[in-house]
């Protein structure tokens, strides 16, 4: 008696691979909605200010999101895997401070970049070890390290600041690769591609989704859950280090308050991009569009001379709005 017994099974059914084509799914996706909103904001901006539709001012606008987005890509993976890192802005402060120290010791551009990345990576390792080895919840660990890392910067710098970074170092945050294309924009684009490929096209990315949806089943399935999480914390630290290099280079100075509050903007970017804060779903294209959208809104409001406080109110409303609108539609249709 086997499964192929014709009396038992009506006929060997062929289960189709997919019902809806990937293209049809894409049309109805969160990313498409976001893109629509981004286009609308772009058009609104171009009507609102005569200075908006200019290659150079658009190029300037990208600085509003490129550094945050570098971190947001890694953060997206971390949040999809069900963890979070709230210490990223403080990692920037610590990296920047360390670079300042190296600069004062006479370090050149190479040494500065290396310091920034290495300190970022070490901070990520510290967070990751506490979470994966001791099994502590990442939200608590990184709230702790958020104070810790920035605290060290304050001890080193006090009220002071590091200034006088070497000229070559300015290239990262102020340089242009070609015409209006900034170095940061190129880094952003390359990272978007790399993270997109890693998350959507590799075994590692698949494991990230599996862990975020059900880490127990992922473990039973032979996924080295703690190792994957450790890698994600390291990546987030490294990306914070890279953001610190770019930001420090752009500002040309280090104060202990550098990048303060940026962790929430990064998380906002990730969530706006459609990544579930509970883990398990989201995409890199979504985060890319969210980054551009946030940059456009901030820049548009800036052109209209809207003060920073109002801007943050606007960003907050946008986040709640974009998340609530689909839910409202669903409720209306359910009636």
């Amino acid at each position: 008696m086997s499964l192929a017994d014709p009396d038992m099974v009506p006929a060997p059914r062929q289960i189709p691979d997919r019902l809806a084509s990937p293209a049809a799914k894409l049309l109805k996706s969160w990313e498409s909605l976001l893109l629509l909103v981004a286009v609308a904001v772009f058009i609104l901006n171009s009507f609102a200010s005569p200075y908006f539709l200019d290659a150079w001012s658009l190029s300037d606008a990208t600085f509003n999101f490129t550094e945050k987005a570098m971190i947001a890509f890694a953060m997206a993976l971390l949040i999809i895997a069900g963890e979070i890192d709230l210490s990223v802005a403080s990692i920037i402060a610590l990296c920047s401070t360390a670079m300042g120290v190296v600069m004062q010791m006479g370090g050149g551009t190479g040494a500065l970049v290396f310091t920034g990345l290495a300190v970022g990576l070490s901070c990520g390792a510290f967070n990751g070890l506490l979470v994966t080895r001791l099994g502590l919840p990442s939200i608590v660990v990184t709230i702790g390290t958020m104070s810790l890392f920035r605290g060290i910067s304050y001890i080193v710098l006090g009220d002071g600041a590091f200034r006088g970074y070497p000229e070559g170092f300015a290239w990262f945050g102020q340089g242009y690769v070609f015409w209006v294309i900034t170095v940061e924009m190129v880094i952003f684009t390359l990272l978007a591609i790399v993270f997109g490929v890693v998350l959507h096209k590799t075994n590692f990315g698949r494991q990230v989704y599996a862990i975020g949806n059900n880490s127990t089943a992922a473990l039973f399935s032979g996924i080295r859950v703690q190792r994957v999480k450790m890698i994600l914390f390291l990546l987030t630290g490294l990306m914070s280090g890279l953001a610190a290099v770019c930001l420090t280079s752009r500002l040309g100075s280090t104060r202990p308050s550098i990048a303060s509050g940026m962790e929430l903007e990064v998380v906002t970017m990730v969530v706006l991009g459609g990544v579930s804060i509970l883990g398990g779903s989201g995409s890199i294209p979504g985060v890319v569009i969210a980054a551009i959208l946030m940059g456009l809104v901030t820049f548009g409001l800036g052109l209209l001379n809207v003060p920073g406080i109002v801007m943050s109110i606007f960003i907050g409303l946008m986040l709640i709005g974009v998340i609530a609108v689909p839910r409202l539609f669903k409720m209306a249709r359910g009636k």
Binding site: L3, V9, P12, R13, Q14, I15, P16, D17, R18, L19, A20
Partner: peptide, 11 residues
């Protein structure tokens, strides 16, 4: 298929 799974699609 060997286990005679019943589902709308593998997706």
């Amino acid at each position: 298929q060997r286990l005679d799974l019943r589902a709308a699609s593998l997706d």
